[in-house]
Nucleic acid binder design. Structure first.
Lengths: 298, 298
DNA sequence: GTCGGCCATAGATGCAGCCTATGGAGTTTA
DNA sequence: TAAACTCCATAGGCTGCATCTATGGCCGAC
């Protein structure tokens, strides 16, 4: 009269996923006969056949489907327990899944990576790049733990913290008349051709917003897929673009053919923040991470 | 390196509820040392202290509280699984997906529906109509559980059972010379115009097969999409057709303008059977269903 | 100081989960 | 058509761990 065992449910879910006893066993790190026998016991205990075993086809019964659904929830909650425990064991240790905007990641990380390693040596960062909408989805689903993006965003069930304010700069061809100026006003962009990223990048909307007060024309039939593409187009003299300050530094800023110029005050800027689930067990380490990033980003 | 066990979580929840190891053990039907030792192992595995053991006072730590919360959810879902299984334990209960040929369904079901409800009261039938090829595909893929169709069919991986033999009848316009006859021989159809269903209906092939021994002409550029269409065409005097007996009864048979006549012996007929996957977990209820249909179809 | 309540420890035991090896049914290949 | 292959089930043996009873240790109550 054995009872329900977490491991058996994992075996069942593995079979549901793979439709194959051998591969399911492999995924569970047990031998195929072990998995077979345990599943048989599970079926005996429940008094219901869960799996149809045909020569070339493994499928779940109706009861199997319904039970696998709950089993997934159980296993998920079990993982949460382990995760919570890990969070309490050493709140500043463990794996943390961090996503950044594509217009932030490559330029922010070099500045803060070494500081982070020193301040949070036992933190294992998993890095991802997503645009705002995708990032929020994956935050809610639990696929990532923290997102670094431009505020404000819809905050239902989420907490956030401002990291830094990032000024915008203007990138023009080196031979452009504006390249002579040490700083630039928004009105100076009058009648210029503006190059922007493709839809979905929040940077695109931010740039359009800043330029809305002056008369500037977006280059038709052109949408860059990355800031790097944008740089090459500016260097080629096709038009100008707005760059977040961090992206204008380093190799990018020194690139041939492109001049980066600041705005005069009031400098247009965007607010970069960290966002995470209110219910996250990793709040402590996230706050520590945010503190480091906020302190060393600019 | 043990892993998370459902039973341990139950022990933990019991302690959270009772604040007392002895009574918690009692509730779990184990000895107190057993529960103590297991909880200690759980804490070791998770790397976190869950319970504050003070003299005269047992309390949960912060981690303990958070983990108990998930543990309750897990146990609850586990109970749901057992409950679901109990609901599926009755082999004659539950949802069964049954497909019928379009030339069978509307005429067979009225005859057997009430008998089925009486004999298998806890069976919930989901009804579908497909032609033979589609039905076999959906059977193999698991989309349906049973098919009722004309035998024989390719039986790889499938089991079948004959339900009944269905004689063919002849449907002629009421004013037709054959309407005067009380029964008809295949040869009597000589030189008649035959109306048939469109390709894909096995009834079409069966009718052609029966008529192959005599000289009869299929109406060109005409293919009915249903027996109902066929009836209207016969009533309009366009030609004659062959009908399965069940389809010739009731409202259909009594319709104006159409006369239904039997064949003389040997009466041509088709064999109607039930087909299901050899590996199906529903064999028992399928056989019960087949028994009822076979007994009350004609 | 003694008793009683309560949790931890010690040592014995039996079951259950796991392994390797093999069987057997069905499908594909030579 | 035989042989090789795929894949799940069965057989048998081993090991570990959950469980038991008995006991110890700690602390508060009286």
């Amino acid at each position: 009269m054995a009872d329900l065992k977490l491991k058996d449910l994992q075996y069942l879910v593995a079979v549901a996923d793979t439709k194959h006893f051998g591969r399911a066993a492999e995924r569970c790190f047990v031998s195929q006969p072990t998995l077979s026998a345990q599943l048989k016991k599970l079926e005996e205990y429940l008094g219901v056949q869960l799996i149809e075993r045909a020569p070339k086809r493994v499928a779940l019964t109706q009861a199997g489907h319904e039970i696998v659904e709950r089993a997934r929830r159980i296993i998920e909650a079990g993982d949460e327990i382990v995760e919570i425990a890990r969070g309490h064991r050493d709140p500043l240790a463990g794996r943390l899944k961090l996503a950044l905007l594509p217009t932030i990641g490559p330029y922010l990380l070099p500045n803060v990576a070494s500081k982070l390693r020193k301040a949070l040596p036992r933190l294992e960062l998993m890095l991802y790049e997503y645009q705002t909408d995708t990032m929020l989805e994956k935050l809610h689903s639990g696929e990532i733990d923290v997102g670094i993006l431009a505020l404000p965003v819809a905050m239902d069930g989420l907490d956030s913290q401002v990291l830094y304010k990032e000024p915008f700069t203007v990138a023009v061809p080196a031979s452009h008349r504006l390249a002579q100026r040490s700083s630039i006003r928004v009105d100076d962009l009058h009648d210029e051709t503006l190059l922007l990223l493709e839809d979905g990048h929040c940077l695109r909307d931010q740039a359009l917003d800043i330029c809305s007060s002056t008369d500037i024309h977006e280059k038709q039939d052109f949408r860059a897929t990355s800031l790097e593409t944008l740089r090459q187009m500016v260097a080629a003299g096709v038009g100008i673009t707005l760059l977040p300050e961090l992206a204008g530094r380093g190799a990018y800023g020194n690139a041939r053919g492109v001049a980066i110029r600041p705005f005069v005050k009031p400098v247009p800027s965007r607010t970069i923040g960290a966002v995470w689930r209110k219910s996250s067990a990793r709040r402590e380490v996230i706050l520590a991470l945010a503190k480091q990033v906020g302190a060393h980003a600019l």
